[in-house]
Design a protein around this nucleic acid. Structure first.
Lengths: 135, 135
DNA sequence: TTGCGTGCAAAGGTTTTGCATGGCA
DNA sequence: TGCCATGCAAAACCTTTGCACGCAA
């Protein structure tokens, strides 16, 4: 049985509002507190775990030094093959959903016998802005 | 200036000996202690950081719950110009040099304005063997 | 009423840092 | 001798867990 609570709704609303980017747990804590709907850290983790298990939210480990990041992906099938581009200069994280890149998974599986988990896979490099600046 | 120390050599020797797989920090600590050349945890982390910065060793975040893993990749140029597939089950590191995958860099640059550094990019997933076993 | 969700605090684990000492060049 | 590397302990950090209370159904 699942209960709907104010806290759970606030958390999910925040994730949906920021569905186009990743949010850290610290960010969630800060935002909810600033909105006047503070939420205990443990509760946030527990809610996030449930959402991840339900498939509504995905958990990303970006560098392992700072904490995990979470992002709402909804329950549409097409949203499960995302890749990320991480700029090593400015740290920007670019979220891309491209047919060509989705083909990579299939290609690697068919030709290299390897099943890629794109949720864990990050391309490192320079974003357009940092590239132009020649940093 | 870089100094060579017994501890540093022991650590690097262990990593080279296990170059075909990744090792956890706990594993390194245990091995060095059992070999009679114990090494402080802090020193291991500091040495690993240097090795990673030098490009001799690569750092992997496999699940974000347990700790990071490290693997010696050597300094051969060849290993820096193509992609790596990392099996999160058995730890096997697969080097691939494939035209199709080389195209990825160009595609991402042309369509997403992002310059990928393939030497830093690792695809995480399951190798054919682990995939078959359904682990 | 039932039992899940919440909050607080404490615990667990990994990684980092401060500082005095040891060892390489 | 100069200076980096080391080791120990403490700290910082993220995340999980225990327990009592609150609240949705």
């Amino acid at each position: 049985m699942k209960y709907n609570t104010k806290q759970g709704e606030s958390l999910l609303a925040f994730l949906i509002k920021n569905k186009d980017r990743h949010t850290s747990v610290q960010e969630i804590i800060g935002f909810l507190a600033s909105e006047g709907t503070p939420m205990g850290t443990a509760t946030i983790y527990r809610q996030l775990d449930k959402l991840v298990e339900e498939g509504l939210v995905r958990r990303y480990i970006l560098d392992g030094k700072s904490g995990a990041c979470y992002q709402y992906i909804g329950d549409a099938d097409g949203c499960h093959e995302h890749y990320h581009l991480k700029c090593v200069c400015c740290g920007k994280l670019i979220h891309i959903d491209c047919d060509r890149l989705s083909d990579i998974n299939r290609h690697i599986f068919e030709h290299h016998g390897f099943t890629v988990d794109s949720s864990q896979t990050v391309f490192y490099g320079k974003c357009s802005q940092c590239g132009k600046e020649g940093v």
